[in-house]
Design a protein around this nucleic acid. Sequence first.
DNA 1: TTTTTGATAGTTTTGTTAAAAAAGTCAGGA
DNA 2: TCCTGACTTTTTTAACAAAACTATCAAAAA
Lengths: 205, 205
Amino acid sequence: MATGNDHQDIKREKILDASHQRFLHYGYSKTTMNEIAGDLSMSKALLYYYFPDKSQLYIAVMRKLANDYIKNLEDNIDTFANLKDAFVFQINTNHDFIVSNYNFFDFFRLNEQNLPDTIWEIVEQVHLAELNLLSRAIKTEIERGAIKPLENPEEIVDLLLDALHGIKVSAVSQKKINFPRKEHLEEIHTKRLLLIDIFIKGLMY
Amino acid sequence: MATGNDHQDIKREKILDASHQRFLHYGYSKTTMNEIAGDLSMSKALLYYYFPDKSQLYIAVMRKLANDYIKNLEDNIDTFANLKDAFVFQINTNHDFIVSNYNFFDFFRLNEQNLPDTIWEIVEQVHLAELNLLSRAIKTEIERGAIKPLENPEEIVDLLLDALHGIKVSAVSQKKINFPRKEHLEEIHTKRLLLIDIFIKGLMY
DNA sequence: TTTTTGATAGTTTTGTTAAAAAAGTCAGGA
DNA sequence: TCCTGACTTTTTTAACAAAACTATCAAAAA
């Protein structure tokens, strides 16, 4: 795309970076447009020249993060020695992503179930990338003859992702809170590794 | 315990039944003490003679439901032909329990993460009963030589219960809501059956 | 023409208060 | 001891004003 001019794109990137920092430290609702503008030594009105509103700005940051995450998955597709390596890679990558952007997601915690559609589209894209990586790994493993042939590998991967999600949720509801605190993330990670171990064996002959 | 007198106990039971019906149809917050008293043709003050307050009344109903559920599990302990039968029994029993008391749990939906400790104790008791049933089934299966010996069957069962929980949560968050609607429960049930299938195979030689 | 801003309009959040509804209490009767 | 009507206290709801923030715009600067 040779449409936009360079200077504008660079400025947009700078705004995205500054916003990312703010959202990461203080979360969505505790970040004001004035503060972001202040960080960049520009007026608030200029922010609105580059982005239509606050939520679109947040979503733009989110999309950038998601794209990096998805690219990382795609770059590693079909590079695994076996199914377990692929599953472990997915879990580790996901874990790192959540840990390093922990506070950024407070927007999710607040709005919970009525997030804008655009956010759900991004979540769906991430989910598809994960699904793709893992089901490719399963298909490869079937071709190698290491596990039983499956009618519908995607369905199985979907089930596993649901189960992995549950590990998080259960850890959280035992603590009587809504979202995992940072210190629980390691425990969740360990449990997930155990689960995929059993799960993979369940797919073998 | 021969402490309480019969008449009181019978009356308490009647109050619990009437309350259960109200809570089941209208949920906790849309049920008033006046209405329950009205159903029983007694004064509200009498209700407070038998139960200290509304939440304790709700909890008493909940405890009764939980005790029935737990008793059902205990009655069936060690009666299974194999591990899968035990797992399927647990999933079916749980499913029936949730379906038939669906509206009763709106209290959970509202108060979400700051429920009274007593509720959590009951949830924990139910969890322990499930854990007990399933880990007994695993131990039996190990003795039979049908699956690999495990260091810590309880840990594995815990992991499975977390994963099963995740099936519910994922189904729900895909629908962008907080709690499953009744019509989703069947879908969740089916997925769970598929998961235990793989999981059990993962425990085999 | 594109980029930038100060001033300001519009909206959401927060805090206050009063009325209504429900929870919870109590003196006294059977 | 079991029970009630009348009463008090607490919680919920609605209305509204003040404050904080989002968003807009005419006009200046580059």
